[in-house]
Design a protein around this nucleic acid. Structure first.
Length: 427
RNA sequence: GGAGAAAUGUCCGAGCUGGUCGAAGGAGCACGAUUGGAAAUCGUGUAUACGGUUACAGCCGUAUCCGGGGUUCGAAUCCCCGUUUCUCCGCCA
């Protein structure tokens, strides 16, 4: 949520900043300003009426005590009370409309990120590792490897549930579990506190991190409740400190969390229909940090490095790109995507997204900080990044570590978890 | 799932036969006095948000006694709905 004071004091600056995203927000901002003026007028009016009412409330008992007739005053107050109620209704309506418009506005992009309309204009920041050569054979896609090895079974998942779900089997299931454990262990050894969150959250939490109200169609809602299946552990973990004032000395708070993630993937019909890349349910280890505002961009750099660390540990080639303004997510001010090399796609493919939300989420979720008791509380900056997606990691391991005979070599770092060095076709 | 009880400021805890209650009292904390220093004692102070005004001092106003609605001239106090916690029963991993 943007600060209404900023919008009020610099509407043209807001319009210019949001225009970089490519959407049209000028009209919303103009409506917001008009509504804000109306809201403040109603506030002033109703507050002065309430002041009169409160004054009378103090007079009435005294007048009664001295035996005076208070009925004319009561008559006046009855009328006033009705006017106050009328104002209260108007004010509530104005506040609700204003909040709705504010909640619908995306975050302001950081001034330093590149301009651009879509992912073609993202800026590559660095690369790590080399795509494998595959001497003497044509590499297979992970879904073909998975079928041949008997470790991935989307067909039966289609029967049991529906499209975009998978059964993992045998060493496939074990590989998924090993990657989760390897990631969590790496991050907790690196100073992150492990969280195992609820996989369903309420509406306030979904609003706090920015999934609602605008993107309700993307979420799975549990029927007959007000709960949503989480699209990412970012939601429960960021909302862990909703409506709290954090101690400045404790910042940054660093959390990592495994969760299953559930996404409707509305609007992506026909994309990535095969394999593990785009599923309604997938696993992810997420990194979340709560930072002092003045440190948040340094934290974004270190958080991104922390996410990269696990790919380096697995020896998977990747690159880091800085998203251009047009490709930026709704809540983010700046985002680095980490893209892993996927031979079947013949290109780098998103496996992690590390973002600084500045105070956008903190304002929605009311997460503040204070250095000492006398200080005025101010909003923290929230950050998160996948550290990293598990299904896509498994896809990348299968494809990058495949051998000419159809087997897959287990990366060194996973062998203690897997208890084997190779995944070979079942006899 | 059923039946009861509860939710007050940083904490504990009054008020809950509606009226001057932002809210007694205590603890804690801060400052001051006392002391060679400390403990004890005494004194003073001790919420947040928003709006207005102003010299960023301050002052004025509004809101906040779990959340939301209602009754009333007036609600921490009465009524309704919800949430959470506790106790008992049921059910279970």
């Amino acid at each position: 949520m943007l600060d209404i004071k900023w919008i009020r004091s610099d509407p043209d600056g807001v319009k210019a900043a949001l225009a970089r995203r490519g959407g049209r927000y000028d009209e919303t901002i103009d409506r917001l300003l008009a509504l804000d003026e109306e809201r403040r007028r109603l506030t002033t009016e109703s507050e002065s009426m309430k002041a009169r009412q409160n004054a009378a409330s103090r007079e009435i008992p005294a007048l009664k005590k001295s035996g005076q007739d208070v009925s004319p005053l009561l008559e006046e107050m009855k009328r006033l009370s009705e006017q106050i109620k009328e104002r209260a209704g108007q004010l509530a309506a104005a506040e609700a409309s204003q909040r709705e418009l504010l909640l619908g506005l995306p975050n302001r992009p950081n001034a330093d990120i590149p301009d651009g309309a879509d992912d073609r204009e993202n800026a590559e920041v660095r690369r790590w590792g080399e795509p494998p050569a595959f001497e003497g054979f044509e590499p297979k896609a992970h879904w073909d490897l998975g079928a041949a090895l008997g470790i991935l079974d989307p067909e039966r998942a289609g029967k049991v549930t529906g499209a975009r779900f998978h059964f993992y089997r045998g060493l496939g299931a074990r590989l998924e579990r090993s990657v989760i454990n390897y990631y969590l262990n790496t991050h907790t050894e690196n100073g992150y506190t492990e969280i195992f969150p609820p996989f369903m959250v309420n509406r306030a939490s979904m609003t706090g991190t920015g999934q609602l109200p605008k993107f309700e169609e993307d979420a799975f809602k549990v029927a007959d409740t007000d709960y949503f299946l989480i699209p990412t552990a970012e939601v429960p973990v960021t909302n862990l400190h909703r409506d709290e004032i954090l101690e400045g000395a404790a910042l940054p708070l660093k959390y990592c969390a495994y969760s299953a993630c559930f996404r409707g993937e509305a609007g992506s019909a026909g994309r990535d229909t095969r394999g593990l890349i785009r599923q309604h349910q997938f696993n992810k280890v997420e990194l979340v940090q709560f930072a002092r505002p003045e440190e948040s961009y340094a934290v974004l750099e270190s958080l991104t490095r922390d996410a990269e660390r696990v790919l380096q540990g697995l020896g998977l080639p990747y690159r880091v790109v800085c998203l251009c303004a047009g490709d930026l997510g709704f809540s983010a001010a700046k985002t680095y995507d980490i893209e892993v090399w996927l031979p079947s796609y013949g290109r780098y493919c998103e496996i992690s997204s590390c973002s600084n939300f500045e105070d956008f989420q903190a304002r929605r979720a009311s997460i503040r900080m204070k250095d000492s008791a006398g200080d005025k509380a101010r909003f923290v900056h929230t950050l998160n990044g996948s550290g990293v997606a598990i299904g896509r990691t498994v896809a990348a391991i299968l494809e990058n570590y495949q051998n000419a005979d159809g087997s897959v070599t287990v990366p060194e770092a996973l062998r203690p978890y897997m208890g084997c060095e190779r995944i070979a076709p079942e006899d």
